[in-house]
Design a protein around this nucleic acid. Structure first.
Lengths: 147, 147
DNA sequence: TATTGTTATACTCTATAACTATA
DNA sequence: TATAGTTATAGAGTATAACAATA
């Protein structure tokens, strides 16, 4: 198979795998009362290093307006708090609550339960990590994230 | 990093890469008058081997009802034709038209333009293909696709 | 003027359930 | 009864544009 064929194959299979993972994890998140996107947002929020909504949008690779909706849900569920930044009153800092920490730990647990990757040896997994990292990092960085 | 950490990392990065690809290819598909899902459906239809809608749903890993909508669009655009199977009048065979072949070739071209993978050598790409294939194939096959 | 967050809106994707026509 | 395709509907994700408050 030529290089183009390989590339197409890789892309299609990766999409397949991520779709399958999303599907499986979606059920687990639902049991936590979270949508997949909300769970991902909670995962990105480091309890020890609160950050403004703008940065979360950057980390999630989506628009700020979406973050507003996601944080609405997380705040309603009592998992996150909005605090106006005293140094720049335009910004709102996102703080993970005590209960938020608990749920976030469970979210990470679900994300770690990657039975889909159980067919790989430690060495293969490590190699895969390096390659995927190289792709997502060096390939075409300017294209990662929204316009 | 431990095995769990590696797995989480792999999953997140893969999702990142596929999201970036989807984003970029989405623009190209829009210029062809296709949504990403419609483009993927057209890609799956082999012009030389027409198949029933049910099988397309299987290949796309989605529900039959979605195929109806996607084929509606493709048919309206004159790229695909529905033909009732004479041997089983419940089935409708999906046939790619002459224009459909042209657009499909362009779709494949777009999917092949994987600049995101340009950072990898031929050998790395080949290794990545094998690993991703192994994951999507052997890991947990029963979970690939819809319920 | 530029930026943060918000709101309103719209489009895409996808699943479920009920329907039909065939088998 | 069971299956193929359709229709209607709903939920989730995400982008755009306009807006208020703040810088």
């Amino acid at each position: 198979m030529d290089r183009v064929g390989l590339a197409v194959d890789v892309v299609r299979r990766m999409a397949h795998v991520t779709a399958a993972l999303r599907h499986r994890q979606g059920s687990a998140f639902a049991e936590l009362g979270l949508t997949p996107a909300a769970a991902r947002a909670l995962r990105e929020l480091d309890p020890d290093h609160p950050l403004p909504a703008r940065d979360l949008a950057g980390q999630l690779g989506c628009d700020r307006s979406n973050v507003t909706v996601l944080v609405d849900k997380l705040e309603q569920a009592g998992l996150v708090e909005r605090r106006t930044d005293p140094t720049d009153r335009r910004q709102k800092t996102l703080v993970v609550t005590g209960e938020g920490r608990v749920v976030r730990a469970r979210v990470i647990e679900v994300m770690s339960d990657s039975r889909l990757l159980s067919g790989l040896s430690d060495e293969e997994l490590s190699t895969l990590r390096d390659l995927v990292w190289k792709v997502s990092d060096g390939g075409c960085p300017e294209s990662l994230g929204p316009e």
